[in-house]
């Protein structure tokens, strides 16, 4: 099966364009997803960086939250960066009132854990499953993972804090590979989507 997988980017708010570019560079067919019917047509989904409170509200308001939860439960591959990581956490340590998540990864995240914008930084990060040089990690008002459950695998840490996690078909990073022009993390996700499609077609 050589046909390119179709991967959506949740386009309610955030750095959607950069993810579309990165996915296309990693040989996926990338398209924005804002509505339930658009979600139904993709093999995998990226939840971009943005404001997690805004994305969460819009997802509930426009009826995307429930179908998205259902598809993640059913095993659709998902990848979340920064705000997207928060959306994939089963639990937020310090949620705003009414802030909902999609869930999918048994982890507790702390929002803005690395600080405000003045503390935002770049640092090299070794990510398991990404061969070669460390990834350039761009951390912007970034969350970290306080703790993970037994089913979740820690892929990277920075300064003693968990910043990349995978559980089955769900992948999350505190940082933004989409801002760097290095598409290896997106390639890892595209491989996850391909593998899932192959498994489903058997």
């Amino acid at each position: 099966m050589s046909e390119a997988p179709v991967i959506g980017v949740l386009a309610l708010q955030g750095d959607v364009r950069e993810h579309l570019v990165a996915l296309a560079a990693a040989d996926a067919v990338a398209r924005p997803v804002r509505r339930p019917e658009e979600l139904a047509e993709v093999d995998g989904l990226v939840i971009p960086g943005g404001e997690s409170t805004t994305i969460s509200k819009l997802a509930v308001l426009f009826g995307v939250m429930e179908p998205l939860r259902a598809r993640v439960r059913a095993g659709m591959p998902v990848y979340g960066t920064c705000a997207g990581m928060i959306m994939l956490a089963d639990k937020i340590l310090d949620p705003r009132s009414g802030q909902e998540t999609v869930g999918g990864i048994d982890m507790i995240v702390r929002r803005n854990a690395f600080g405000r914008q003045n503390e935002s930084f770049e640092a090299a990060v070794d990510v398991q499953g990404v061969a070669g040089d460390p990834v350039e990690g761009v951390f912007i008002r970034a969350p970290w993972v306080e703790s993970v459950g037994a089913g979740a695998e820690v892929l990277a840490e920075h300064d003693g804090h968990i910043v990349a996690v995978r559980q089955d078909n769900a992948l999350a990073t505190s940082f933004h590979p989409e801002l760097t022009g290095d598409h290896r993390v997106h390639a890892l996700f595209v491989d996850m989507v391909r593998a899932n499609r192959t498994a489903e077609s058997l």
Binding site: T54, C82, E119, S120, E122, I140, R141
Partner: peptide, 27 residues
């Protein structure tokens, strides 16, 4: 300045500043 392979994290880089605005898009 950006030095991806050094250990020290770099704050206030152009990428971190511009990247912050990228996160506000559509908002």
């Amino acid at each position: 300045t950006t030095s991806p392979n050094s250990q020290a994290p770099a704050t206030g880089t152009a990428r971190v500043k511009r990247g912050m605005a990228e996160q506000l898009k559509g908002g």
